[in-house]
Write a protein that binds this DNA or RNA. Sequence first.
RNA 1: GGGUGCGUAGCUCAAUGGUAGAGCAGUGGCCUUUUAAGCCAUUGGUUCAGGGUUCGAGCCCCUGCGCACUCACCA
Length: 508
Amino acid sequence: MPIEYTNLEKIRLEKLERLRAQGIDPYPTRAQRTHTSSEAAQIFEKAESEGADTNISVILAGRIRSIRTMGKITFAHIEDGDGKIQLFFRANDIGEEALAFFNKEFDLGDFIQANGELFRTKTGELTLRVSAYRLLAKAITPLPADKEEEVDGKIVRHTSLSDPEMRYRQRYADLAINPQVRQIFRTRAAVVRALREFLDRNGFLEVETPILQPIYGGAAARPFTTYHNQLKQNLFLRISFELYLKRLLVGNIERVYEIGRDFRNEGVDRTHNPEFTQLEFYMAYADYEKVMTFTEDMVVYTADQVLGKRTITYQNHELNLQPPWRRLELHQGILDVTGIDINACPTAESLAAAMQAKGIQVEPQATRGKLIDGLLGDYLCPTLIQPTFVYNYPRDISPLAKSKPENPSIVERFEGYIAGMEMCNAFTELNDPQDQEARFLEMGRDYDADDEERHPMDEDYLRAMRYGMPPNGGFGMGIDRLTMLFTNCPNIREVILFPHLREQDAEA
RNA sequence: GGGUGCGUAGCUCAAUGGUAGAGCAGUGGCCUUUUAAGCCAUUGGUUCAGGGUUCGAGCCCCUGCGCACUCACCA
């Protein structure tokens, strides 16, 4: 199908053709730049403060973001990776012809290279007095009109690209005109860098494990399925890294982590994207108590590195990450918010009855664990604004976690909540192969043979465990959600460059 | 999957069932240190798609598509 150009694009295509007719390549192969905008500002201000010669020649390059023509002079702002800087074109400097050429053929969005000397205008703005310029890349499609002014030091946006659908579908345009969006992804990168640093310094080995897996596991989620043609093999996109990383503990790698993508074939909402970035680590000889304090240290380290402080403003909340975080036993937390004592309800039937007595709707065939999980999600979660570890979970919703020695129906598991969001999930890992096999079998009984959530038995994982797995603590955390906290974003899509969107109907 | 809302110019948005408009961007003109530069003139529309009601639909009805919020689902 041929491209249908808008009127605005057709005008720019005409400019492009005129350039070519004059022998000017609108997309030259080489570019030159001596300074970025902020580097230029630095050397100029340094010269100013030292009383040195400020007639500094530089070559700048960037995208044209504004043009103001005033007869025989023209002002423009270009934006590069560091920021914006003003260009000043004057007929006296470059000749009337070169000025007219710029005014006629250059548009907002074009990339330009400009030589000249730095100076300050009457209003004090650092500016490049252009002596020569060159087109680096012509923009055919206009970026959304976008103007801003400074009022009392605050940037006021007048119009901008704000439709979320277009922002996500055309993230390049969003990034090009919304600097605060670029900042989100710098922060995201800084978060990942800090986590890596922290784990590396603590003796962890970073690894990569299969994304395409013949058997999926390690979490309760529906997988995406795919197929290898030559091997004639069904494969799943991983839903967690857990079972592979723990095999590495069997292989005498005592501290191991992976940062990567998980895929879950489930609902999409403000805290769920079908593919998301997960950090998992496993630490030999640690239990969940130790993992809790380690988690606090890791998150605080990240906050120190990325934000330089340990308090976060998130939506309407002031969050304090300073350890120790609140520790709340799941049983106590549910009792506090619902008045239901889950310990007094040892069966699904008795718990369902207690819930119904409180006017809580109960899904008919839910297991006791699922009922408890429901109470946690619906009633306890929303109250957990400041960082809180909820600990000690029912065994039947935690098949990979180790039971408490004194109470086999409870496992040593915790989840970390901040701002009502589940941030992480961790436990003292089960390392008894016979218990693990029993758990897999137990879990299998809760599902019909064709239930999509039914998990296949991972025999190889059991075999690995039979070779001996050191006692260890394991941990998983959603990097996207952590980034939401650090960037004050209410929606996971804001922190994912290309979030999943429904396919637009391609020629129905 | 359910509910609610939204979809109009390149962007942001208006428009009692009665001639589809504004700001920015664009185009032409004036203007040699501007700051959302200003002034004058001007171009630009399959009103998401398809059906229906009506003398007449951007607006009312139906279907579909997409997005947002929300509920459900999500060890």
